[in-house]
Design a protein around this nucleic acid. Structure first.
Lengths: 245, 245
DNA sequence: AGACTTTTAAATGTCTGACAAATAATTTCT
DNA sequence: AGAAATTATTTGTCAGACATTTAAAAGTCT
């Protein structure tokens, strides 16, 4: 684990890279303790604050965790689905909000990915997943819901659908796509008629999943995609009539 | 932008969170300059090293970038697809390697996601995408390739397929799933016959994409998935006969 | 006046040294 | 033996200093 004196990168970047490489190559294994900050400073011939900045970089990516006290130190962290999920959401959300990704592009990606899950979900969903989906449908049907609450329930419905596929890797990837869209979805105003139509489609999806018919679920998902894109188009057209093309 | 004196989190964590929230809420916009480290230290009533640790945490997530010199400082970074992609690969790869995700689970997720792209790719792929796919098929056909080179070409083939869908959001999500599997794929030994079969399937996929037949592409992708899983099963069965169940 | 050079100021990057706080191991006392 | 006090180790935080980079300002020459 060495750093290159010719590199133009900051020392803390180089040190973080070196440790990250050691972790990814398997030279450092999960729960293994790294040398203390003082020892690392010695090893890399830098000061302790520089080592600390490097360790904080790694901690921010959940690659290590630190513990104070006598038997403390920095330990290689087992990256949990939960940690990875949180990072994924942050990254995906910012990616959409900062890069002028069109609603259509994000929406298309989201539903395409979701259609990848639905057939598996139709095969494997447990009664719990179905119950979760039905519960969200019920919540969405209640009058007087704010648009934000309606959207949150929508996300929860789709999460249940995805989780039904019983594949944590799939759930992890989908979570980013679905939840990252929430800020975009929150820009939409849902009239009572819009909601009724969406709920009917959700109903149809839940039925198809319950009946084990993945193809039917996918057909309805495509309808839902069309509906969502139409709603967005209307909202944006109404909101900025001057920019209409 | 304040921190909670009652929190048990480290100060640098709290400060990083506060700034991150400001970025995600839109209070700080892209390319906006943050206050200098000295000013931030004043504002949060902490020392400069503590502020620096917080900023390094954010820099590790590509949320900010720093610049030295007179007009320098920390700036809100426009998260690029490239940065996001790099983070995604790191996270996904570690997630698979550290969490005892079975080959089947990862493989299923990967192909399910890929089948979400293929129909779009069949509609939109440009001649460039097709050329890239054909070029990789050619490379894979060359004798004497190491397994690693073969795998790398396999990844490149699938990337071209995914990029053909012309949806950067989709490409971003897929990249994580496909590339994260590479370490797992590298454990497989491909015999000449295995390779021939895989290349034939690639050929079929490229043909289907060229012909605009997404359904056909997906059928072959499913065959490829079955083939890949069978190969993996054989490898693992041969490698650890004692643990066979 | 304009172009080039030098100086200056502001900012991050790094270092030294110190103390605070947490925590596990050790020692001491009962 | 068990509980309490002590000790040692390690991370968290602070203060102050110097090094390095960079853009802008000031100065100089033609």
């Amino acid at each position: 684990m060495k750093i290159d004196p010719k590199s133009t990168d900051d020392l803390s970047v180089q040190i973080a890279e070196a440790i990250k490489d050691a972790i990814m190559s398997g030279a450092l294994i999960v729960d293994e303790r790294l040398p203390s900050e003082a020892e690392l400073a010695d090893h890399f011939a830098v000061s302790r604050p520089t080592v600390r900045e490097a360790l904080k970089r790694l901690a921010a990516q959940a690659l290590i965790r630190t513990q104070r006290g006598a038997a403390g130190g920095a330990f290689v962290n087992r990256l949990s689905f939960e940690d990875a999920h949180a990072q994924q959401i942050t990254t995906s959300t910012l990616l959409l909000s900062m890069n002028a990704v069109s609603f259509d592009t994000a929406c298309e990606a989201r539903f395409a990915l979701e259609r990848a899950c639905a057939p598996l979900s139709a095969l494997r969903r447990t009664p719990d997943h179905l119950a979760a989906m039905r519960a969200e449908i019920l919540r969405q049907s209640q009058p007087g819901l704010t648009d934000e609450t309606f959207c949150a329930s929508d996300v929860a419905f789709h999460r249940a659908l995805v989780d039904g596929a019983d594949n944590p890797v799939l759930s992890y990837h989908l979570a980013g796509a679905v939840e990252a869209m929430q800020p975009l979805m929150n820009m939409i105003t849902f009239t009572a008629r819009d909601r009724a139509r969406i709920i009917a489609l959700h109903q149809g999806i839940a039925d198809a999943i319950e009946g084990g018919d993945g193809d039917a679920a996918n057909r309805i998902l495509t309808e839902l995609e069309d509906e969502t894109r139409k709603l967005a188009r209307d909202v944006f057209a109404a909101r900025m009539p001057a920019q209409a093309v």
